[in-house]
Nucleic acid binder design. Structure first.
Length: 427
DNA sequence: TCTGGGGTCCTAGGACCC
DNA sequence: TCTGGGGTCCTAGGACCC
């Protein structure tokens, strides 16, 4: 029997903000998405007010004023660094770790049968609180799907006090617990599947566990069949310790203000292609296709809508910023139409491979490629040292601050990654 | 006036092959 | 009246995750 633990940080972004501003403890606070658009993290106090995750911030303004909810712009520099600290601590409990997202990881405790998972879970909780400063929940089960469910139980049921090992429950207690949770709480069941399953009379986790797996595969997909088997304790999902290189790299942003002119779209698309190329090089990958898309505001029914996309296939896979920017620009020029109120642009790199086994172009000059490579090294080094975006193509004549630049009006300092932002402690 | 930004996997259907 | 039977590859779109 495997023993998989899922550890995640409770309302991660909110918890990060609280580490450096303890006065926020016990206060209703939220963290907002880019452009201060939507709520992406809520403290328990805000959840208790019934504010759903993902709500547009301006929709809850009134409620926020009434209850003095404090909002913060997202500070990904801080959250990324805090995430690294959490993962470092977790790795000390088991080297068999899959970092599943910025705030959660699976760890395999099977190779340490002499340790009791629940006791270990309590130790993890205590240590992360003390060493990193964030509260976590721990769920343990014989499969990843059960560990996810256990984690949910650890949060929702006070009697578990943040740590739940479903392996400790006898059959009757496990059944009761599974009857107490709706099918939507299962990892892999979203709103669409929930609706379809409900039609079939499958309403609780227990209903899904006991449903005929092969029939569900026929009706829906192999993904759902695997979920059902995992709920029964049959492991169908591997623990992926090494993340394979990404197959797709996206850089996109909503604009701070609507944009109408090609000139401004060019600037933002160049910026996205540059960022995507940086990510690509960091992965040690090359891409053969660069895609661009534009969006108008789909919530504004009075506006003419236009959501075009196009892509450019490059002569050979590359990680060269200038080639990728040029490709993105060509794609953009093909889809741009005047007269629309654009609110977002994005770039997507695909057909990605390992740069070490890259196939060159037929007419490529070897020393040209070598020069470009050196140029990219300089670019990456400069941006690493002086801040991302300091050096890049198309910067000449750029209007600052651009209309397309993000709005972030409530950002906290980069406490852990910038000397200037270090916390001052008074004696 | 203001509604995020990343990713993954699977399926269906069409084009094409022998 | 009857019009084969396998394959592969690619793409678009859908569903899910955080």
């Amino acid at each position: 029997m495997r023993r998989i633990a899922l550890v995640d940080v409770n309302n991660f972004y909110v918890s990060c903000e609280r580490v450096f501003n303890p006065k926020l403890e016990g206060q209703p606070i939220v963290v907002l998405s880019n452009n201060d658009g939507c709520i992406v993290s809520r403290s328990a106090e805000v959840k208790a007010l019934g504010v759903p995750n993902g709500s547009p911030w301006y929709h809850v303004r009134e409620l926020a004023e009434k209850h003095q909810i404090q909002a913060f712009s997202s500070n990904y520099t801080l959250y990324g660094d805090m995430s690294r600290r959490v993962m470092d601590v977790l790795r000390q409990f088991s080297p068999d770790q899959e970092i599943y997202s910025i705030d959660e990881a699976f760890i395999d405790l099977t190779p340490q049968p002499h340790l009791e998972p629940a006791a270990l879970g309590r130790l993890i909780r205590q240590r992360l609180k003390q060493w990193v400063g964030v509260p976590v929940s721990v769920g343990v089960g014989s499969t990843k799907t059960i560990a996810k469910l256990a984690n949910h139980a650890a949060k929702k049921r006070a009697e578990f006090a943040g740590v739940c090992d479903l392996g400790l429950l006898d059959a009757g207690a496990l059944d009761a617990l599974m009857r107490g949770f709706g099918v939507r709480e299962v990892w892999g069941v979203g709103p669409k599947l929930e609706a379809k399953l409900t039609e079939r009379g499958i309403r609780t986790v227990a209903d899904l566990r006991d449903a005929p797996a092969s029939a569900l595969r026929e009706a829906y997909s192999v993904v759902l069949e695997r979920t059902v088997r995992e709920l029964r304790g049959v492991s169908c999902l591997r623990l992926d310790q090494v993340r394979p290189a990404r197959q797709q790299i996206i850089s996109s942003r909503s604009f701070g203000e609507p944009v109408f002119a090609l000139e401004e779209l060019v600037q933002s698309v160049q910026r996205h292609a540059t960022r995507a190329a940086e990510k690509l090089r960091r992965d040690g990958s090359v891409a053969a296709v660069v895609g661009v898309w534009l969006e108008t505001n789909r919530f504004r029914k009075q506006d003419a809508q236009y959501h075009p996309s196009a892509s450019t296939r490059l002569p050979a896979p590359t990680d060269d910023t200038l080639s990728l920017v040029a490709g993105a620009r060509r794609a953009l020029e093909r889809i741009f139409r005047k007269g629309y109120r654009y609110v977002k642009a994005g770039v997507c790199l695909s057909d990605i491979g390992d740069r070490r086994v890259r196939q060159g172009a037929l007419f490529e000059l070897p020393d040209h490629a070598a020069k470009r490579e050196r140029l990219m090294k300089v670019l990456d080094a400069a941006n690493e040292r002086y801040g991302s975006g300091i050096l890049g193509p198309g910067h000449a004549g750029m209007t600052r601050p651009a209309r397309w630049a993000m709005k972030r009006l409530m950002t906290t300092p980069a406490y852990t990654t910038s000397w200037n932002d270090l916390v001052r402690v008074q004696a």
